[in-house]
């Protein structure tokens, strides 16, 4: 085993996120393609992480748990410097992170610290002639690149919901405590967190299911109907650019080339006709459902399933039907 692959397993409030299992699974599969490599999962936290040992079952040969007060609050500097140190200590040939809010914030810092190029938002990893190659969307998914970075350490963030976690072993691992070198005082200080009422619990880019509304919803008040459908599905609510520009929904809800690029398992587009910049942001969803009154709407070209008709009748019926089958 000449290679070591580090997998950053993200946690939130002492519990590993789904992305942690995705990243470790991807690292294990890459290790296999490289003809054998040691997979080291790295968990960084201020407290103990209850399910860290489970990573062993997903292919982590070693689980490193770095904890300390330096990682409290918002500390991308401390995180990235700790990861750099570990990368060097382990002579890692690759380091994988999730393309989540946290992963996106610390991976570029790490790239600059290591002077290793970062391949962001990967949807595929492979080995070609001994070198790691990655596939990633560009132009919000209007095209895809296959890239080969030239570097001592391959650095990449992985798009959520793409690398399906898979259990490869029954054995759980034992997390090993690791202490990074002393950290300097952070210069960016978190003063407060404002949680608006009805704050989203599911982040759009990491959601399994998204219910999205377009201009055909006719007004912000009608989004309550989409919230209800989302509630029944455990989904996040998204919106088209027209809706966000009209001020009906917050900017963070926008799906599309100037908003968020998403790839959920199920995307339900309600009264969205399908402007090119919206389609770019959601076309890699696994299953797309379109509900629109215009049967010629471009969204139907992309959708796996479509219903032509009035969203104001169809959406409540869909919510009721889903409650019925889920309750069954």
């Amino acid at each position: 085993m000449s290679h070591t692959i580090l997998a950053f397993a993200e946690q939130r409030d002492g519990n590993l996120k789904k992305s942690a299992f995705e990243v470790v699974t991807a690292a294990a599969s890459l290790a296999k393609k490289l003809g054998g490599a040691k997979v080291v999962a790295v968990v960084i936290a201020t407290q103990s992480v209850g399910n860290a040992a489970e990573l062993g079952g997903y292919g982590a040969d070693e689980i490193v748990l770095a904890s300390g007060d330096a990682f409290a609050g918002y500390a991308p500097g401390a995180y990235s410097r700790a990861l750099k140190e570990l990368c060097e200590q382990k002579h890692a040939s690759a380091l994988l992170l999730p393309h989540s809010a946290q992963g996106k914030d610390l991976a570029p810092r790490l790239s600059a610290l290591l002077l290793a190029p970062l391949v962001a938002d990967c949807v595929g990893l492979d080995v070609d002639g001994g070198a790691i190659v990655a596939r990633r969307p560009v132009y919000a998914g209007k095209a895809f690149w296959t890239v080969k970075p030239k570097s001592g350490c391959f650095l990449a963030t992985l798009r959520p919901n793409v690398f399906t976690p898979s259990k490869s072993a029954t054995a759980a691992g034992t997390p090993i405590a690791w202490q990074p070198s002393a950290q300097r005082k952070p210069r960016v200080v978190l003063k407060s967190v404002i949680a608006p009422e009805g704050a989203k619990t599911v982040e759009l880019t990491e959601a399994d299911v998204i219910v999205s509304g377009g201009r055909g919803m006719k007004g912000p008040e009608h989004f309550a109907m989409l919230e209800e459908l989302a509630g029944a599905l455990g989904a996040a609510v998204g919106a088209s650019r027209a809706v966000v520009d009209a001020g009906w929904r917050p900017h963070g809800d926008q799906v599309g080339q100037t908003g968020k690029t998403v790839s959920p398992n199920l995307y339900i587009a309600c009264a969205i006709s399908g402007a090119i910049q919206h389609l770019a942001g959601m076309s890699s969803s696994r299953v797309i459902v379109a509900i629109n009154k215009d049967k010629e709407a471009p969204i139907f070209k992309l959708a796996n399933y479509g219903i032509v008709g009035d969203v104001f009748e169809i959406v409540p019926a869909l919510t009721a039907e889903i409650r019925k089958v889920k309750g069954a």
Binding site: F144, W145, K148, K150
Partner: peptide, 19 residues
């Protein structure tokens, strides 16, 4: 230090159906 080996259009989605 990142070489683009290939650029491709997205893979075509399966033919959809109006339910």
């Amino acid at each position: 230090r990142i070489e683009v080996l290939k650029m491709e259009p997205p893979s075509a989605r399966p033919e959809g159906k109006i339910v």
